[in-house]
Simulated scan of single mutants.
Amino acid sequence: MNSKKRENKNRDILLEIIAISFLAMGGIFVKASQLSPLNTGFYRVLFSLPLLFPFAYKQLQALTRKDCLILLLSGVFLAGDIGLWNLSFSYTSVANANLLTNLTPLTVVPVAYVLFKEKIPKYFPIGVLITFLGLFVLLGGKVQANSEGYFGDFLAFLASIFYGGFLLISYKLRDRIGSHAIMFVSGIGSSITLFILANMESFQVPKTTADFLPILGLTICLQVVGHNLLAFCQGKLNVTLSSVICLFQAVIATIYSFFIFGETISTKEIIGMVIVMVGVFTVKAQFASPKTKAEAPI
C-alpha cells in the first residue's frame, strides 16, 4: 500500500517546530521531579489519557482490532523512549540528552526507504550532515568526559532508536487515523509498559504538590501538546523531513537553559544554532512536492 503524499507546507513545518518547543521542556520537568525517572514517565503518560480521551473518542470508533494492536505496540516503543530519555538525565546534561535522543534520522531514514519506498533526494545527505555538524558545534563544549556522562549519552541514543520506531508506526497510521486516537491508544501501551518497568525499579505514588507539578508539566507540555501535535504533523510532512526538523529540539533546549537556568550561550553555540538552521532549511528544500487533494485526518 502506498502512503499518501505529504505536502510539506511551511505552516505544518512551523507547527512541528512548535511541537518540539514543548517537547524540549522535558528535561526541565524531569530534573525537577521528586519521583524516579521511570515513575515520572509512567505518571506523565497515565495523566494524559483522560485529557486525550474527549478528543480521541470519535476517532476511536473507526479503529479495527489490528489498528489497536499496532498502536499498543507503538506505545511500547514510546515507553522505551520515555524511560531511557528520563534515565539519561541522571547521567548526562540536558543538552546532550536532547541532542542524542533526536538522532532519529539514523533510524527513520533507512527504514522508511526500505519499508515505505520513501525516496532520498540527491542532496538530502548534505543537509543532514550540515544539521549534525551544527548540533555538534552547538554542544561541543558540553560533553562530559567521564564514564557516567558516556553512559547517559548511550541511554539517550538508545532512546532515539525507540522513538524512531514510534515515529515510523505513527507515520504509517496517520494516512487514515487521527493523531488524537494514535496518542490515546499508544498511551495505553506506554502506561502499561512503564508501569511494569516502574515496579521493577520501585513503584512510587505522588503525594505532595512538589510531586505533582513536574508530572503535570510533562503531561501537558509533552504528552498532550508536544507529542499530539507532532503526531498530527506526521500526516502532513514527509517522515525524513519531519525527523530532521526534530533535531531543532536540542537548539531550543539550549535557549531554555539560558533563560531558565541563566546558562551563558557562547559564540560557538550561536554559530552551531545558525548551522543547524541552514541544515534544516537545506533539507526542506529537497522535499518540495506538488500539492495533493488528499489530506490525512486531523
Results as ranks from 00 to 15, higher is better:
residue 16 E to P: 10
residue 241 L to P: 09
residue 82 I to Q: 06
residue 144 Q to W: 03
residue 98 N to T: 10
residue 258 F to H: 15
residue 215 I to H: 07
residue 201 E to W: 04
residue 201 E to M: 10
residue 291 K to Q: 14
residue 203 F to K: 11
residue 86 N to T: 02
residue 194 L to A: 04
residue 108 V to Q: 15
residue 190 S to P: 01
residue 40 T to C: 07
residue 276 V to F: 13
residue 218 L to Q: 15
residue 101 T to C: 14
residue 251 V to R: 05
residue 159 A to C: 08
residue 120 I to S: 03
residue 94 V to W: 12
residue 140 G to V: 01
residue 39 N to M: 00
residue 271 I to G: 03
residue 183 M to K: 08
residue 245 I to H: 04
residue 217 G to S: 10
residue 150 Y to G: 02
residue 199 N to A: 12
residue 34 Q to W: 06
residue 212 F to C: 04
residue 26 G to Y: 04
residue 192 I to D: 11
residue 132 F to H: 00
residue 223 Q to F: 03
residue 193 T to E: 07
residue 162 F to M: 14
residue 273 M to D: 07
residue 42 F to T: 02
residue 248 F to G: 10
residue 267 T to Q: 12
residue 79 A to C: 11
residue 5 K to H: 14
residue 154 F to E: 01
residue 30 V to A: 14
residue 17 I to P: 08
residue 52 L to C: 03
residue 65 R to G: 15
residue 31 K to V: 02
residue 165 G to K: 05
residue 161 I to M: 07
residue 145 A to Q: 14
residue 161 I to W: 07
residue 17 I to M: 15
residue 187 G to L: 02
residue 1 M to A: 11
residue 108 V to Y: 06
residue 170 S to Q: 09
residue 44 R to L: 06
residue 222 L to G: 00
residue 60 L to H: 11
residue 203 F to D: 13
residue 3 S to H: 14
residue 269 E to Y: 03
residue 145 A to W: 14
residue 259 F to M: 12
residue 80 G to Q: 05
residue 153 D to P: 00
residue 239 V to N: 09
residue 178 G to A: 09
residue 199 N to T: 07
residue 23 L to K: 06
residue 272 G to R: 11
residue 246 C to G: 08
residue 11 R to G: 15
residue 261 F to N: 12
residue 158 L to N: 12
residue 178 G to N: 09
residue 47 F to N: 00
residue 166 F to H: 09
residue 253 A to K: 01
residue 40 T to L: 02
residue 184 F to V: 02
residue 108 V to R: 13
residue 82 I to T: 06
residue 148 E to M: 04
residue 143 V to G: 00
residue 91 Y to M: 00
residue 201 E to C: 06
residue 145 A to C: 04
residue 224 V to H: 07
residue 78 L to M: 15
residue 280 V to E: 12
residue 122 K to S: 00
residue 207 K to W: 11
residue 64 T to P: 04
residue 49 L to A: 09
residue 57 Y to N: 01
residue 216 L to P: 11
residue 114 V to W: 14
residue 281 F to G: 10
residue 77 F to I: 01
residue 285 A to R: 11
residue 224 V to E: 11
residue 18 I to F: 14
residue 230 L to A: 05
residue 257 S to T: 02
residue 232 F to Q: 04
residue 155 L to P: 03
residue 277 M to I: 05
residue 66 K to P: 11
residue 44 R to C: 01
residue 210 A to H: 08
residue 154 F to G: 01
residue 6 R to S: 03
residue 218 L to W: 12
residue 12 D to N: 14
residue 109 V to I: 06
residue 296 A to M: 03
